[in-house]
Amino acid sequence: MSTTPLVEFRRAGIGYDGQSVLHVDSLRVNAGEFVGVVGPSGSGKTTLLRGLLGIAHVYQGEVLVDGRCVTPRSRVAVGYVPQINTIDWMFPITVEEAVLLGNASNMWGPWMSRKVTEREVALLERLGIAHLRHKHIRNLSGGQQQRVFIARALLRNPRLVVLDEPTSGVDIKTRDDILHLLAELNNDGTTILMATHELNAVAAHLPRVVCIRGKVIADGTPIDVFTEGVLSETFGGQVVVVRDHGRVIVAETPHGFRETLDRHSHEHEHQHVDGHEHEHEDTEPEPRR
């Protein structure tokens, strides 16, 4: 593994229209890592990715990819999978054409080289969508659509692949398939940086997570980072974290759940004070911490 990080943010202020919306004092991603970036909507997840892609402005500090400073005029070769809801699904384009766009800057003329076509077919086969090559991208399932854009990102065999919400809007099985696929790519040596809302998916699949909310709140393994304190600071509300046999599960808090817990806890203390103990079958047990 190289000692120089593949991605490095140094006191970077990133934003749009002359205003920084995200400040990253220090963040390093080494070659071969698989990193998830989590945070609430508007926390700067997409801005972080766009900063290293050269789409968002870096107003202070610097962002380096592979040792080179990223600017809108000097971008580095990375594979990028944008949010799927930014795609124009009415655009007349087939799966094959969408994937080959990944090599657009190197192709002259409407034809494509045999080498590129072979790579495209091999990628589609690996991702299990080779039979859909000539289909319009709209006529695919959500998971298949994501695979198309992952294939495009991989066409030039980049060292770094950046994905913005690759599991949004897909069912749990598809989400699991996509994350396994990304883990496979990572095992093959591709560095992956992914923004997501899926905390449990990150906890289950990713070795490293960065929580952000206008700045980096925490950075480390999901076991270390996913605590109620960190997640409450990141998401600005109460979050329940369940730890079970080395797994971390972030639970949603239904209305009244916290109040029930508090009441149960309060009654429990009160009963101890009174010297009485009763079983309460109608209250939910407090999660193990």
Binding site: G54, Y80, D88, L101, A104
Partner: peptide, 14 residues
């Protein structure tokens, strides 16, 4: 084709 389909992403791809 790429610039027409998605100019922003096209710029990321060089």
């Amino acid at each position: 084709l790429f610039v027409t389909f998605d100019a922003e992403v096209a710029s990321v791809y060089g």
